[in-house]
Amino acid sequence: MSVTYLEAIREAQTYLLREDKRVFIYGQDIAGKFGGAFKATKGLAEQFPGRVLNTPISEDAMVGTAIGAAMEGMRPIVEMQFADFSSIALNQILNNAGTQYWRTQVPCPITIRLPSGGTKGSGPFHSQSMEGIYSHYPGLVVLTPATVEDAYTMLIDAVAIDDPVIYCEHKYLYYHLKADALPKDRLPIGKARVVRPGRDLSIVTNSAMVHEALAVAQQFSADGIEIEVVDLRSVKPLDTDTVLASVARTGRLLCVGEAFPWGGVTAEVIARVTTEGFHLLDAAPARINAKDTPIPYHPNLWSEHRPNAKTIAAKVRQVLAE
């Protein structure tokens, strides 16, 4: 048996609906036989009548409704059809969900699933990685699972958290990642994972870029250069300790992110390492992100827009040369 990243998300939701009566799923085209634009809820509406609900095309109201339901004791999961459309719900997420507990002491346990990141041909409005925006605002937990196992356990954990959680699932990983089985163990939310140990340079990254980084590390290993790869898993909270421990081992840091370059996760990691671990660095830290343009449609452009094995490798050489 094998499980894809997408199946893990479906299995996690099956588990949640089965085990927790408070859970319901709210989103566009997710019910009926259709089961969602990516089939993440296929079969669930039949299995759990009345708990997988189609909504109108109203991202703002979908999240607002989830907020109200959560305040009333439910555990709604909102599926955005694409992360990009969550911009319509930005106000509800940032200003209503994100401020609720602090203002009123009433927790707001909603989970918003964002099908994120680029796949070729998807263009400017179906490719975005929005974890940086959500992490910038107080009151939210932001997760970016990069493996089948994390996709499963982190979604289950997300729903258990008493606060609003932005769960960024990567669309490229949906079908490309497979595991032998669903995981038995879990690493808690808030902990980063060293996915490949090394001694010469640390690549700190998240989501689909973890796999680009691993490919690059493999490549360098053939030449005797050992790159350590850290998968952040959770962007907020950010596991600064694990990152600093890695930099302490390697002395060199490269941050890789699929999101746009201004600010964001890579900048935050570098800010933390330089303020907290300046003495650990043997070279200036570097980062590589997507280009500062909308995400292009054509595969030839798209593959150059985001960091790829070639551009990451070039950056690695640059940092090693310092």
């Binding site: 109201a61 999240v63 607002g64 907020i67 009333e72």
Partner: peptide, 9 residues
Amino acid sequence: SVVVGKLLA
């Protein structure tokens, strides 16, 4: 919509 969510719940 927050009221709607409260009522739905």
